[in-house]
């Protein structure tokens, strides 16, 4: 074989190898580009997760601070009252006057029960985050009927559910809590002789809209935000057993399920609470 033949063949092989190397380079560049893109997307997702988790952490921290403040603030009133009543009791016993003893011990007992109610409510509120969310099909008609029958016991109540409530996939525990709180309030805070209760429902594109209406005294719109805050009741706390936790719990649950809660009210005519629940 002549030298020129050898160099000719070598040249051809080098050219072929060069082209193959260029192809591989092109391929690797594309792979690198796609990997970089995937990394950038992953980074963006991670950033979003960080923002989301930071926001949730902040919410949890704010909630904790609020609970700590409320616990100390709201518990002070009954504790102060216990202290005062105890002093009066002491003074009367020292003076040999037993006429008010029974009255004072009843007052003490009610204040202690009030503290217990507040503490139990706080525990219930904080434990909401740990509820086991078992999403199964719930017969809402059956669920609500049971709640009404239980809550109205011994009371004269004209009630209806219209239209028929659906069967839907949801956490039964959470849905029950919301309905129970709203129905309890609708009956408990209605001072009228002929109480009435209406449960309504509307299927929307991506959610269910429920309503709980009563013919009670209505709620002043000035309190539209306040009633969803912890331990806020619109009547004196020693006039009722309410802890002021029902609506904040309902709101927390509804919002955790991607919904919203609000009310419409007319004084002396009645109130309707609405809440939405995301379809699964």
């Amino acid at each position: 074989m002549s030298d020129s033949d050898i160099y000719k063949r070598r040249y051809e092989r080098e050219r072929k190898a060069r082209k193959e190397a260029e192809q591989l380079l092109e391929q690797k560049s594309l792979e690198l580009y796609e990997t970089n893109l995937a990394i950038a997307q992953l980074n963006e997702q991670l950033e979003k997760q960080v923002v989301d988790r930071t926001s949730k952490l902040k919410e949890a921290k704010d909630e904790l601070e609020m609970i700590a403040y409320i616990a100390s603030h709201d518990l002070k009133t009954p504790l102060r009252s216990i202290s005062h009543v105890s002093s009066w009791l002491e003074e009367d016993i020292q003076a040999g006057d037993y006429s008010e003893v029974f009255n004072y011990t009843s007052m003490l007992k009610r204040r202690v029960e009030r503290i217990e109610t507040l503490l139990n409510s706080l525990i219930e509120y904080t434990n909401l985050n740990q509820e086991i969310l078992d999403h199964r099909e719930v017969d809402v008609q059956e669920l609500v009927t049971k709640i009404i029958v239980h809550e109205k016991e011994g009371q004269n109540l004209d009630w209806q559910i219209k239209p028929k409530l659906p069967k839907m996939k949801a956490s039964k525990v959470l849905l029950e809590k919301v309905f129970k709180n709203l129905i309890h309030n609708a009956i408990f805070y209605n001072n009228k002789e002929d109480k009435s209760l209406k449960i309504g429902f509307e299927k929307r594109l991506e959610s269910y809209l429920f309503s709980v209406s009563d013919n009670g005294n209505g709620i002043d719109p000035r309190f539209s935000k306040k009633i969803f805050e912890l331990f806020q009741t619109l009547s004196r706390k020693d006039e009722n057993d309410s802890s002021g936790i029902g609506l904040p719990i309902a709101k927390k649950i509804v919002m955790s399920q991607g919904g919203d809660i609000w009310f419409e009210s007319e004084p002396q005519i009645g109130t309707t609470f609405y809440f939405t629940w995301k379809s699964i």
């Binding site: 092989r13 072929k16 591989l24």
Partner: peptide
């Protein structure tokens, strides 16, 4: 396979 044409990255 390549007639003796090889590239280091292949």
């Amino acid at each position: 396979s390549t007639g003796g044409a090889y590239t280091a990255v292949g």
